[in-house]
Design a protein around this nucleic acid. Sequence first.
DNA 1: AAGTGGTCTAGACCACCTC
DNA 2: AGGTGGTCTAGACCACTTG
Lengths: 235, 235
Amino acid sequence: MTEIERPSWKKIRDIIHGRILDSTYAPGDKLPKDDDLAESLGCSRTTVQRAMRDLAESGRVERKRKGGTHVRAHPITRATLDIPVTRQEIEKKGSVYGYQLLTVHREQTPHQISEKMGLTEPREMLRVKAIHFSDRRPYVYEDRWICIETVPESANVDFSQISANEWLIQNRPYSRCDLRFYAVQARQDYGKIFDIDGNEALFVMERTTFIDHQPITSVKAVTAPNYQLLAQMGG
Amino acid sequence: MTEIERPSWKKIRDIIHGRILDSTYAPGDKLPKDDDLAESLGCSRTTVQRAMRDLAESGRVERKRKGGTHVRAHPITRATLDIPVTRQEIEKKGSVYGYQLLTVHREQTPHQISEKMGLTEPREMLRVKAIHFSDRRPYVYEDRWICIETVPESANVDFSQISANEWLIQNRPYSRCDLRFYAVQARQDYGKIFDIDGNEALFVMERTTFIDHQPITSVKAVTAPNYQLLAQMGG
DNA sequence: AAGTGGTCTAGACCACCTC
DNA sequence: AGGTGGTCTAGACCACTTG
């Protein structure tokens, strides 16, 4: 029997987690029900609940009403990604942020973009291309589409003074965001922007944001060579 | 005043979230304290707490004791990534999974690997190289280092029969995982594996796992061309 | 020092899902 | 139909942090 002096949901969580790690509860096993754990651990069911929710959110166990709590049979790695606004990211490193607008114009969305935004038909949107600099060196090239119908004010914004990235975030909170990460070869166009030969591999982040199922913007952010995205689980 | 028939923390959360979205509570603003919200929304403080925790976890608000709750001034995109075991990922798509061991041997860790594992000195580890196939086509090439001291049994496993990926996950749960994503040019070596010319850009995932600060394994997973990693926030 | 969020309890009822 | 997790309440105390 485990003695607990100061029951706290984190301690309870760690005890249960420990039992998963040392295979007291092996993958696929069913855990005792909350009531029993609460009694044996000397705390209230609410506290066990709190601990269990944490374990469930981090993907360690699965809970079902009536079905009980089971250790995940096929574990997954669940990590949290924090993607800051580009300016913040650069300034946080202690570097000097710079921004340059390349082009702004209205354009019909190609099928690929419409699809990401959940639209069945092409639509005229605002297309903004720009570069973010870190210590005067190109850091991120962004190619963005802004849905004018969802964000009509965007037509009157001077994107040479403020990046669409920042303007949108300060003016148009979103309720959903789809993310996509992949690698792309620089080729000529990106090569010219980052001043490299066209054979380098670049890391790309695509984000499409919505508010109540209405698309706000879709952006392809092509990062400079050697960019790395970090994430962590646990700790 | 908002009328609530059936208070539930999700409704409370959505109401507060709605006020953030419509700028009733603008970025940087201080929200009323839980007690007041509870009263005005007709629910208990615990329920407001539950709602607030959700908003805080998703990065919308920041809470401080005595300081109160504030709408985040510089919003971030916080998303959850689920990275399944490679076999699961392939089979879930309805494809046929295949696996081939390339090499296994003992080797001294280069500085780069030791560093990722938090080791100050090089150490002899098990190095396993293998390919995962999807419908007979190379899907992921993995180059893995396994810490023999943390996982001594690994020395006796026949990795031609089971992938290190699966064996480890079924036998060595981890408590922490560091992730790193970036793009790499295929060049000759990866090009040969995926049967492409060396100029293509490939998406790479690096994972290093630990148990109680002891390193278990560090793997570099190089994915086939056109691989994309997806994530979502909200919904 | 005092205000505010964080946690805990005991009990109750509800909702979902397997058995 | 019954077992199990999910939520809610009211109240209490604690811990942090700021004014």
